[in-house]
């Protein structure tokens, strides 16, 4: 498949701090790629470098067949970008803001705009300053997703959105992908990105984690059920405590199959139990505790 984004050996440092350390990335046209990683991993810098907003120190970059350093405007003409830290023009009404951002675009997808307006249900005649954080994010999404371009780069598009809107957004992104649009997004909701994206890349300390290493970490986490025991109940045999969360939930490591272990636990000893749902922060901790990046 033709590549929308091709990156080889991308390095970027701010002074002595290396933020991107040898990124290799290929995103096919029409692909939806999710990028996850802890704060400061380099996600935003990667996106900015792809758009030419920040110059790379080393590496070969091609975005929509163009070099970001020399053809940034051409890339930005064919790309819509939603920054992670994105404010709003508070003095404008929602409608004025949309007219402003659409004024820079050759065309918008009228059907998509109508769907998004319907789904987000924003009072566009009101000043943005009267909007809540979630409403502002919906307005920014409306301005970013409605133009008809080839590539959409979305840095935490689900920020401040409730679950219902996140699901609506997920459906809309899928619909855009079906139209052949390439989408690159980052998020802190691992489960939702996994459910949405064709592929997931895990960025850690400026480099993508090797798939085999990620798979091993996830397998390890699957061995670690989270259980909340009733008061005074001891941890049943066959598992050892790995961590205790502030609400009293125990992260344990079972000797064998966690499902089998859970069956041995008396039902009246447990308030809740969770198996096989890796949390992003657990992945971060586990991977950060291991040496090395992508081999």
């Amino acid at each position: 498949m033709d590549a929308a984004i091709e990156v080889t050996g991308l390095h970027k440092a701010f002074g002595p701090r290396a933020v991107l350390r040898g990124i290799d990335l290929r995103v096919a046209r029409g692909e939806l790629l999710g990028v996850v990683g802890p704060n400061g991993a380099g996600k935003s810098t990667l996106f900015r470098t792809l758009l030419g907003l920040v110059p790379s120190d080393r590496g070969d970059l091609r975005v929509l067949g163009l070099e970001p350093r020399t053809a940034s405007i051409a890339i930005r003409t064919r790309t819509c970008y939603l920054p992670g830290e994105n404010g709003s023009y508070l003095q404008m009404t929602g409608r004025e803001y949309l007219n402003y951002v659409f004024g820079f675009r050759a065309r918008t997808d009228a059907a998509r705009l109508a769907r998004l307006q319907d789904g987000f249900a924003l009072p566009l005649q009101q000043k943005v300053r009267s909007f809540s954080a979630g409403m502002k994010q919906k307005l920014l999404l409306l301005g970013c997703l409605s133009p008809d371009v080839d590539l959409y780069v979305l840095d935490e598009p689900d920020r401040a959105l409730d679950a219902t809107v996140r699901f609506f957004l997920r459906d809309e992104l899928r619909a855009m992908q079906r139209l052949g649009k390439t989408i690159l997004l980052s998020s802190h909701h691992l489960g939702e990105v996994e459910a949405l994206a064709d592929r997931l890349e895990f960025l850690l300390e400026g480099t993508f984690v090797a798939p085999s290493r990620l798979a091993a970490a996830r397998a390890e986490l699957r061995q670690r059920p989270r259980v909340r025991l009733r008061a005074g109940q001891p941890l049943p045999a066959g598992a050892s405590e790995v961590a205790r969360e502030p609400d009293g939930t125990l992260v344990v490591r079972t000797d064998g199959d966690p499902m089998r272990w859970l069956r041995t636990v008396p039902a009246d000893a447990v308030d809740s139990a969770e198996i096989g749902i890796p949390r992003l922060e657990d992945l971060y901790q586990l991977l950060l505790g291991q040496p090395g990046g992508r081999a």
Binding site: R48, L51, L53, I73, R76, T77, Y81, L82, P83, E85, N86, G87, S88, Y89, L90, F104, R105, L140
Partner: peptide
């Protein structure tokens, strides 16, 4: 200050 600088820079103009 309003955190709109990045989206302004990302507009498709020089």
């Amino acid at each position: 200050e309003n955190q709109t600088f990045e989206s302004m820079l990302a507009l498709p103009i020089s």
